[in-house]
Amino acid sequence: MLRTEHRVRKMEARAIARTIETDGERPERAGYPDGDHFLGERTLYGGGQWVVVDADYIWSMHGNGADGDDWSANNVGGNIGWRIPRTDKMVASIRALHDAGARL
């Protein structure tokens, strides 16, 4: 039962990230968002995926700083980021998934 719940939460977290990337914008260049990190983190080797919630936007971030990555694709520091305008409903969903232990 727990494996199924974990799998469902992971699918829901991935759906949120996919929505941000599909419906949002990928700014040409942006400073790193000053906000809270959820659902994942940057890896030691420059990869990883996570969500950042700042005052105005919800960001889906992909670490793109490892050897062999195309660093010219980066638009937010050593990362590729997409954003959508912040909504209370989306923030509540992200927080609930994070609190339940979901990871991207």
Rank of each mutant, 00 (worst) to 15 (best):
P33I: 09
D34P: 02
T4V: 07
R7C: 00
Y32G: 03
N74H: 07
T87I: 03
T43R: 01
N64P: 12
A92R: 02
I58H: 01
Y57E: 03
T22A: 13
L2V: 09
D56P: 03
I20W: 08
I20T: 02
A15N: 14
G81F: 14
Y32E: 13
G35F: 08
P33M: 10
Q49T: 09
T87L: 01
M61F: 10
M11L: 14
F38E: 09
H37N: 07
A100D: 15
H62S: 07
Y45V: 06
G46P: 09
I94Q: 10
A15S: 14
D69W: 00
V76M: 15
K89Q: 06
N74G: 08
R18M: 12
L44R: 09
A92H: 05
I16T: 03
Q49V: 07
R18W: 11
D36C: 02
A100H: 03
D99M: 06
G65N: 10
I16S: 03
M61A: 04
V76I: 15
K89R: 14
I94S: 02
P27W: 09
N75V: 10
G68F: 04
K10Q: 14
D36K: 11
N64G: 07
H6G: 01
I58P: 10
A96M: 05
T19N: 12
R26K: 15
N75T: 11
G68Q: 04
S93C: 05
A73W: 10
N64L: 05
R103P: 02
L44N: 06
V76G: 07
A73Q: 15
Y32I: 12
T4N: 09
G81T: 13
W50E: 11
G81L: 11
G101V: 07
G77E: 14
D88A: 14
G47M: 07
K89H: 06
A30D: 11
M11P: 00
A55G: 10
T22N: 09
G65A: 13
P85N: 11
A102S: 02
A15I: 03
L104K: 01
D67Q: 06
H98P: 10
D54V: 04
I16P: 04
T43G: 13
I16K: 09
T87W: 02
R3S: 09
D56N: 11
N79R: 12
G48E: 06
A102N: 10
G78S: 14
A30E: 15
S72I: 00
G40D: 10
L104A: 07
E5I: 12
G24C: 12
L97R: 08
N75Q: 12
A55E: 15
N74A: 05
W59I: 08
E21G: 04
R86C: 00
G101H: 08
R83Q: 12
I20R: 04
T4R: 11
G47S: 11
W71Q: 12
D36L: 08
E25S: 10
A13I: 10
R18E: 14
A55D: 15
M90N: 00
T22I: 04
R9P: 01
G35D: 09
G68T: 04
M11H: 05
I58Q: 05
F38R: 07
G46Q: 01
G77H: 09
R29V: 12
M11V: 05
I16F: 01
G77D: 14
K89M: 02
G31S: 15
I84H: 06
I58W: 01
E21I: 11
V53S: 07
A73D: 15
G24V: 11
G48R: 04
N79V: 11
R18L: 13
S60T: 05
T19S: 13
H6F: 06
M61T: 02
